[in-house]
Design a protein around this nucleic acid. Sequence first.
DNA 1: GGCTCAATTATACGCTTGCATAATTACAAC
DNA 2: GTTGTAATTATGCAAGCGTATAATTGAGCC
Lengths: 213, 213
Amino acid sequence: MTGERRKFRREGADSRRQALVLATLDLIAEQGVRGATVRAIAERADVTQGLIRHYFSTKDELVQEAYLAHMAGLTEQTFAGVVEREAALGRLAALVVASVTPPVVDAASVGLWAGFLNHVRQDARMRAVHAQTYHDFRDRLERLIVAALEEAGRAPDAGQARRLAIACNAVIDGLWLEGGALPEAFGPDELTGIALTAVGAILQLDLEEAAKT
Amino acid sequence: MTGERRKFRREGADSRRQALVLATLDLIAEQGVRGATVRAIAERADVTQGLIRHYFSTKDELVQEAYLAHMAGLTEQTFAGVVEREAALGRLAALVVASVTPPVVDAASVGLWAGFLNHVRQDARMRAVHAQTYHDFRDRLERLIVAALEEAGRAPDAGQARRLAIACNAVIDGLWLEGGALPEAFGPDELTGIALTAVGAILQLDLEEAAKT
DNA sequence: GGCTCAATTATACGCTTGCATAATTACAAC
DNA sequence: GTTGTAATTATGCAAGCGTATAATTGAGCC
């Protein structure tokens, strides 16, 4: 009865790193940062804990990469399907709807974001990722807003465009947050309607009509 | 050279509990939940760790009480100074301004909130506190909105009032979040102006004028 | 001034954590 | 088939964690 050593398959560095990152995100989403221990991550990725050290020189490095992946995925999910429309107004409406609809609005996603925030505040590199993700999203939103306004024959100056983008982004973020943190407080399509009305009111555009087409 | 035992003063249960709660909030705000260990909390409160167990049967109980205190303080800070005006419009403007101004908007405060969120998701009692805090705030906001609209000769029905409150709350929360998480991204009074304009646009009321008086 | 008792300190236990290092093994090259 | 090597497992360690419990001590009361 020799202690049977565990069998394993060799895999490429990329696929293993990705698997570890995914396992990390799963665990943080489910149990908070507390639950994402090195051992739990390894188990979830079906690997022994030593391997983590082989791919990431420290746990913080893994967490950092997981954060990057999560934020990139969030932006990607939000903008998926936005480009396929002709009118800027329609694209804007689609973006707003996507921002307050699953899978973007989701308890795990918000929990993940919150779990990372304190790491973000203490690590310079994560702070940079955070700032860039935020600004990227807001810039794309601002360009869409400007396009939609120009389409309607209005031309905001730079300062106005910036302020409008910040305000619309705030509506979206606020609803994202509340929808994710307190899902049972809202009806099925309630957030969608509110988001379209509110952003429409701020921009003085009819987004609700545009969303239907 | 006998190991000198530490001197101490006896204090009332209330004051000690409060000191421990404050120390907990300080630490979570500064270093995240990770840094708020029993030993660190005790040191910050100038007490030995055994005393924590004397007042709280478990660490989670202390964290729970700290969360309650933080949320109550946040609502209180936001509504302080709102009641002193005659016109509902002015009170609403004051509330909006207070919501996006320090000390409510603050990196530590947002960090605290984020640090608690994952505890909230796993503990039923904390979830109840969270839901109630949110609904309390939104209900007060809704009443203020209804009063301001009636003052302007408009009478929203219940559904409209609810949706308007959710939307305005989202703007406020979104700006609170972004202002706290990314302070350097905004000018000094920028958030105030944006908040007033955006909420004003949603409600079709002139809040900026009302805020000046 | 001594008694009493809760408030406080002191100490220690068992567990988990992140990290290090040595031993194995799958797989490709020749 | 042998060999080389990087991928993977196995094992261990020191530190920190929350919790339990026993020993002290301040302070009000008679």
